[in-house]
Nucleic acid binder design. Structure first.
Lengths: 346, 346
DNA sequence: CTGAAAGCGCTTACAG
DNA sequence: CTGAAAGCGCTTACAG
C-alpha cells in the first residue's frame, strides 16, 4: 500500500496496454489483438498476453477505446421526475440491464427546467453518449427539451413521444382491464371506479379498461367513473360519499391509484364496512409503501417500470448497433399483484 | 458528407476542432488555445476561431479531452437504496451541483448484491470516473463493496464510512433536538418518543437528541423511548396503547419517522383526541407523501439529503483537484419543517 | 504470425 | 504570435 495521500488518487497510475505488451514481450498491437480475441495468432502468444494482463490487473481505458470506436458505451437518462416514483424503477431496470452489457448510465435530473435540460443535454453530447432515454411522469407530457438536431438514438419512457419517435409506456387500459376482470371473476357485480383528474390521459385509458371488462361480463357500471385527484383525501371523501346513502352500493371499487384506494379503505373502515367482505378494493401503481400499509394489504396493478427501463435500454442498443427499430409507441403489459383487499385470496 | 446512413446515429458526424481550425484559417493547435482561453495570441485571431466554432456548432469531444487530461469529468454514484427514499434526493443534489461544473454522474444501482457491486465498480474504473460517491440507506451499514486498492477519491453519504474515509450523514441527534426543543418552546411538557428498532444507530442518536432537549428544559421524559419498527402499524398500535390508559398522558409525541407519526395520528384521531390541541406530533424524514397527507399536515425533520449530495460532490471535486480533504464523518444539520401537527402555527 | 505506422480528437511543450 | 510535433491509450489496416 503505497499511500501518497496527496493528489487526486491514491497510489500509482493505472496499468496501460503498453506495460502488458512489454511484460508479455510483444508489441502493443499484438497485445491488443490478443486481449480482444481478434485476428489469428499463436495460442501460446495470446495466452502469454492474457496472463500478463491478469497478473498486472490490466483494465483497458474505456475513453481511449471510445475514441477509436466512436462508441462510448454510455447512455444518458434524462428525467423530470424528481420524486422518483416512476423514474427510479425505470433507472434501476435500465441500469441493471446495461451494466451486464458494459454500458453505464448517466443520470440527469432536470426539474421541468428547460435551461437545466439544455445544460444536461449538452453535457450528454459532449460526453458522447451513445443514446438517450427520456423518462417522464406521465404519458401525455413531453419533457421540456428541444430535440433540434440530436445526434443520437433516443427513446421515451412513460412520457409523450414526438411524431416518429420511439416510446415505451405501460398499458393503462390493459392494466385496468386486468384489475376489473379479476374482480368480476371473484363474483363482484357492482364495481365502481374512483380515479384521478380528467386532465390525465391515463385516467381515460384506465376508465376504458374498466368499462371494457364490465362490458365483457355484461355488467353495467354502477354509475359514472368518479374523477377527482390522485390523493388519499379524495379517496377518503369519495368513500364516505359513495357508501353514505342507502340503496344499492358497490360491492367493489377499482381505484385509479393506490393513494385513492388507501383513503377509500380508511373511509369504509370508519363506516364499519369490511374490506374485502363487504367491498373489494383494487388499486393501481403497486406502490409498496401504500399497497402493503393498508389494512388489509392492497391488491394493485403494477406498471412494470423496471421492465420498461430494461426494454428501453435494449431497444436503444439496437438502434446504436445499427439494427432497424420501428418508430411508434409500445404499450407494455401491466401485472396484477393480488393481496387481500380484493378477497378470494388468503 | 459521406452519409452512410446505416450505423449509430442520424445525420453527419460531429464537427471536430480540425474543421473549426480550417474554417478560421489557423492550425489545430492555435484553435485549441483560442477556444480554451490559453496562452497569448492576437485577440483578432482568437475571435475568429471562436466565431467559427460557434457557427459550426462545435462541441469538443469530452473523451478526447479526458484522454489527455487524465480527467473525465465524470463521477460514479453507487447506491443500494433501490427504493430511492434516500438516494434520490442525494442523487438530485449531487447531479445538479455537478452539472453546473460540467461533471456528469453515472448511476449504479446495486441491490445489496456484492457481485453487482463489483461489476459496477469495474465499469466505473474502466470509464475512468474521477471519483465515487457511495450512498446508502442507513448510517451504520456499509455498502457491500471491497475497496481493495481503489484508484480514486471516494466519499460516503448516509452510510457507514470506513476508517480514514470521508462521510456525510445527517445530524440525527441535532435533528431530534430541534424537533423536541420546538415542542418544548410551544409549551409541551410531557413529550414522548416513539421510534424504530434499536438495531439502528439513528434510533439511539434521535433518542439522545430528544433527551438532551428535555434535559435542557429541565423536563423528565414521560417514560422510556418506545422502540419498535419504522411502520405506520407500529405507530398506530403504540398510539392506541399510549393513550388508552387514563392517568397522565403525553401532551406531545416526537416520532422517529413520518410513517410512525402517521399511524400514531390515526390512532389518536380514532380515540377522539385532537392533534395538535390535545397532543402535538412531530415526525422525522419530512417525506412529502406522508407529511402532507396526514390530517393535520405533519411537522417533520428534514435530513437535507439534497444538500448532502451536493456537499459530497463538491468535496469529491476538492479531492480530485488535489486539494486536501480531512478524513472523518461530517454530520450536517437537519431542518425542521413546521406544519400544523405541532400547533403554534396556522 | 507479428509489428510499425497511422489515426481517433484533443492538448501541450517547444520551436520558429 | 503561430504552427509542427509528440503524446494521451487504444485499435486497425497494412507490411513484413
Amino acid at each position: 500500500m503505497t499511500d501518497t495521500g496527496a493528489p487526486s488518487a491514491s497510489g500509482r497510475a493505472r496499468i496501460t496496454i503498453r506495460e502488458v505488451a512489454s511484460a508479455a514481450g510483444v508489441s502493443v498491437a499484438t497485445a491488443s489483438k490478443a486481449l480482444n480475441e481478434r485476428g489469428r495468432m499463436m495460442p501460446e502468444t495470446r495466452q502469454r498476453v492474457q496472463d500478463a494482463a491478469r497478473n498486472l490487473g490490466f483494465r483497458p481505458n474505456a475513453m481511449a477505446k471510445a475514441l477509436v470506436h466512436k462508441r462510448s458505451f454510455t447512455l444518458g437518462l434524462l428525467t423530470n421526475d424528481t420524486y422518483g416514483r416512476f423514474t427510479l424503477p425505470v433507472a434501476a431496470g435500465l441500469s441493471a440491464a446495461m451494466a451486464d452489457r458494459g454500458v453505464s448510465v448517466f443520470l440527469c435530473a432536470i426539474d421541468d427546467d428547460p435551461e437545466r435540460a439544455r445544460l444536461n443535454l449538452e453535457a450528454m453530447e459532449d460526453k458522447q453518449v451513445d443514446g438517450l432515454v427520456m423518462a417522464g411522469k406521465r404519458i401525455d407530457r413531453a419533457l421540456p427539451i428541444q430535440f433540434t438536431a440530436l445526434h443520437m438514438p433516443l427513446v421515451h419512457v412513460n412520457a409523450a413521444c414526438p411524431e416518429g419517435g420511439i416510446g415505451f409506456v405501460p398499458d393503462d387500459e390493459g392494466g385496468a382491464h386486468l384489475a376489473t376482470a379479476h374482480l368480476v371473476a371473484l363474483g363482484r357485480r357492482r364495481i365502481a371506479h374512483v380515479t384521478g383528474p380528467g386532465g390525465f390521459a391515463a385516467v381515460h385509458l384506465r376508465e376504458a379498461g374498466w368499462r371494457r371488462a364490465l362490458a365483457e361480463a355484461s355488467l353495467a357500471p354502477p354509475g359514472e367513473a368518479l374523477l377527482g385527484e390522485w390523493s388519499e383525501r379524495f379517496g377518503y371523501e369519495t368513500g364516505q360519499r359513495l357508501f353514505a346513502a342507502g340503496g344499492e352500493q358497490p360491492d367493489a371499487v377499482f381505484c385509479g391509484n393506490d393513494q385513492i384506494a388507501r383513503g377509500l379503505i380508511d373511509a369504509l373502515t370508519l363506516q364499519g364496512l369490511r374490506v374485502p367482505e363487504d367491498v373489494a378494493v383494487v388499486g393501481f401503481d403497486n406502490w409498496g409503501l401504500f399497497a402493503e400499509a393498508t389494512r388489509p394489504p392492497l391488491t394493485s396493478v403494477d406498471m412494470e417500470f423496471k421492465a420498461l427501463g430494461r426494454e428501453a435500454g435494449l431497444t436503444l442498443l439496437d438502434g446504436i448497433d445499427g439494427r432497424t427499430v420501428a418508430p411508434g409507441i409500445r404499450r407494455r403489459p401491466c401485472r396484477l399483484v393480488v393481496r387481500r383487499s380484493c378477497g378470494g385470496e388468503t
